Amino acid sequence: MSAVPTAERDPAVLAPTVRGRRSGRSGTMVRRLASQAFVWVLVAAAWELVCALHVVSPDLLPSLRSVAKAAPELLTESRFWDATGSTIGGAAIGFALSLAIGIPLGLFLGRAQFAERSTQLVLDFFRAFPPVAVMPVLLLLYGVTLKMKVIVVILACVWPVLIQSIYGAKSLDAAVVDTVRAYRIPRMLTFVQVVLPSATPFIVTGVRIAATTSVLVAVAVEIITSSAGLGRLIGTLQFDRQTPMAYVCIFAGGIMGYLINWLVKILEDRLLAWRPTDSGE
Rank of each mutant, 00 (worst) to 15 (best):
D124E: 12
L172E: 00
L139T: 05
M188I: 14
I151W: 09
V134K: 03
V152Q: 00
K147M: 12
I154W: 02
W159K: 11
F129Y: 11
F126L: 10
I154H: 03
I166C: 03
L140N: 08
L172A: 02
V180G: 09
G168K: 07
Q164C: 12
L139P: 03
V137H: 02
T179H: 07
V180L: 14
L140A: 14
V194T: 13
R127L: 01
L121I: 13
V177H: 01
M135R: 07
V192A: 14
V177A: 10
Q120A: 12
P130R: 04
L138C: 07
D178E: 15
P130C: 05
I185T: 15
R117Y: 03
T179F: 14
Y183Q: 11
A128C: 09
F126A: 01
P131W: 15
S118L: 14
G168I: 06
A128M: 05
V192R: 15
I166E: 00
V152H: 02
V150Y: 01
V176A: 12
K170A: 14
D124K: 06
L172Y: 03
D178P: 05
Y183V: 15
L189R: 15
P131T: 01
V152E: 03
A174D: 13
Q193F: 11
P136F: 04
L146V: 14
C157N: 08
V144H: 01
D124I: 02
P160V: 11
Y142A: 12
V192E: 11
P186W: 11
T119M: 14
A133F: 08
P160Y: 07
G143I: 08
P136V: 06
V153N: 06
F129V: 07
V150M: 05
F125A: 11
S165E: 03
A156P: 02
S171T: 09
R184S: 12
G143E: 06
I154D: 03
M135P: 05
I154Q: 04
F129S: 09
I154S: 02
V176Q: 13
L155Y: 09
V144G: 09
W159C: 08
V180A: 15
V134L: 10
V153W: 06
L172W: 04
A128W: 00
S171L: 06
F126H: 00
V153A: 06
